[in-house]
Design a protein around this nucleic acid. Sequence first.
DNA 1: CTGAAAGCGCTAACAC
DNA 2: GTGTTAGCGCTTTCAG
Lengths: 343, 343
Amino acid sequence: MSERVTIDDVAALAKVSIKTVSRVLNDEPNVRPCTRQAVTSAIERLGFRPSRVARSLAARRTFIVGLFYDNPCTHYVSNVQEGALQACDRRGYDLSVHPKPFRGVVTADEIVELYRQARFDGVILTPPLADIPALVAVLRAARVPVVLISPVDRGSGFPTVGTNDRVAAEEMTRQLLSLGHKKIAFVSGHPDHKAVGLRLEGYRNALREAEIVVPEDYVVTGLNSFESGEVAGLKLFNLPSPPTAIFCANDEMAVGVLKVANTIGLSVPRDVSIVGFDNIPITAQVWPQLSTIQQPVREMSERAAEILFRRIEGGQFESDIEHVTIKSSLVLRESISHPSTNS
Amino acid sequence: MSERVTIDDVAALAKVSIKTVSRVLNDEPNVRPCTRQAVTSAIERLGFRPSRVARSLAARRTFIVGLFYDNPCTHYVSNVQEGALQACDRRGYDLSVHPKPFRGVVTADEIVELYRQARFDGVILTPPLADIPALVAVLRAARVPVVLISPVDRGSGFPTVGTNDRVAAEEMTRQLLSLGHKKIAFVSGHPDHKAVGLRLEGYRNALREAEIVVPEDYVVTGLNSFESGEVAGLKLFNLPSPPTAIFCANDEMAVGVLKVANTIGLSVPRDVSIVGFDNIPITAQVWPQLSTIQQPVREMSERAAEILFRRIEGGQFESDIEHVTIKSSLVLRESISHPSTNS
DNA sequence: CTGAAAGCGCTAACAC
DNA sequence: GTGTTAGCGCTTTCAG
């Protein structure tokens, strides 16, 4: 009822030792049902809530995991958070979120610092932070329990969860090929993001497989932003022989390309097909709706959190490092069709 | 260097008492410069980092504030988080984020529970949670230090930061009137959101001021979502005498209306002007770009956090309750023009 | 099955 | 200026 009820108050009321109360709180065995009952009702009557702070100090575990990110895409971040939060909820952990602007090695030290001061039980890293070998190396050296969300699953020494960016990009490219497109361009993304690099690879693989040679000016580099998509689109549409389909490494750029197409009077998909990657909400709200690839971001971060919990709780015994891949899938909507005959 | 360096190790190395180390750590006065120097270098040499957990337990303060929200809009939430995070960073606080699906009073108890177990120093509430009197009342009864982000600034007993929704909506409506529109419709939002209610009031005020009577079927109710905007738009366009301008209580619905307009072959703004509210990124990425109202969400939550810190640190003396309003402003873009003569 | 005692690593009074 | 002594509210040996 009143302000500060402690475990001692409960023990006194239940006429047991604080150790017994502690046992009940932590669902430990070796407590007689009737004792347990007495403790429970004392807790109830006093409105006792154990202090996480005190528990953390004594148990030397905070039940807090740190989530570090540096990603300009709101939807990506928000999905990562939701997934992690959900997993945390289930397991009684708290999440501490930390947007860290990418500044190379400095950031790594900041993360270690926070890990040590705040005594996180573990840390989750998302791209592009998870893609920076130097940063990851510092965390390893500091023996921080980390799980990475990253398409790169080798050599980090940490468990990783990712998706099959390359294969999904291959599939989407094949989809365009199967519609009859031969002049397919690609707007690649920010060089720091490994994932978008893999998407470019997938695109190239599929075209090679179809024995189509891509003129180099069909591959333009964007920066993952809407604006960079506009620039890229303009460049492609002004080519002497413009493409009939444009595959963008992410949705924001695809929307940029779409807008430019509309602005200069091209009709989508009649004059040009456009596809993106990520399936952010806007792809379903523009006109025409964009075809894209659904990335299972929530599931990925949920999974990452679960792996982290297992390692935390498994202690040092869980030494094998797992790499999980969760599949992305095509979302086909209005923005694609057969190429028009006059192209 | 090694795993667990404590304040005792530092004290031993610096040949002082732990209290002196503590003084240095907390920048307290009454330490001779040379002693301070000795401590500092001992800290440096040992790589000591004070445990926040231990500090929290001893000081009976966690330096953590809880942020509770239940808002479907990703951009809103993300801006609130960023603002709060920034304020926290500056003042050495941590933020603990908690998406709480609105389930009436149950949620209030959950918040109190978390506050007591996690020992937050304070709590920030955003709409629509902050708009629920019953919920707020429970927090008051539990004596939780709270700051609300809410357009309603009276009677809660807590400090509040909000924006001038009604006045901004009045201005936007006047803007449409000044372009010559007389048939202006309004798509209102979810009834649980007080802010969108105020926007409707602003719309009505401006029309009353202009002595224009609005037919009741010009005001339709949406649910703040894109889809509900589509439905609302369809309804309005099918009216015997359709409006020449549509004001939506938020941007998502405005985008829905815009999409429907495009789909049924109306040209915006030639056939109909459309405006939204919030200035989310998509408004600048659709074609034509939407006029809207810029809500200073980041600044609001930053301010809310600062007020909370002041109250936490000011103890019980800071008893006056402040209500801060940060102005919203019009963002005029392509989606509005004079009504065409044939309407 | 249960309890006594000893911390966890820091801050807070109050001496000196 | 600085140190001593108590805690903060739990978990954890280790006896019983």
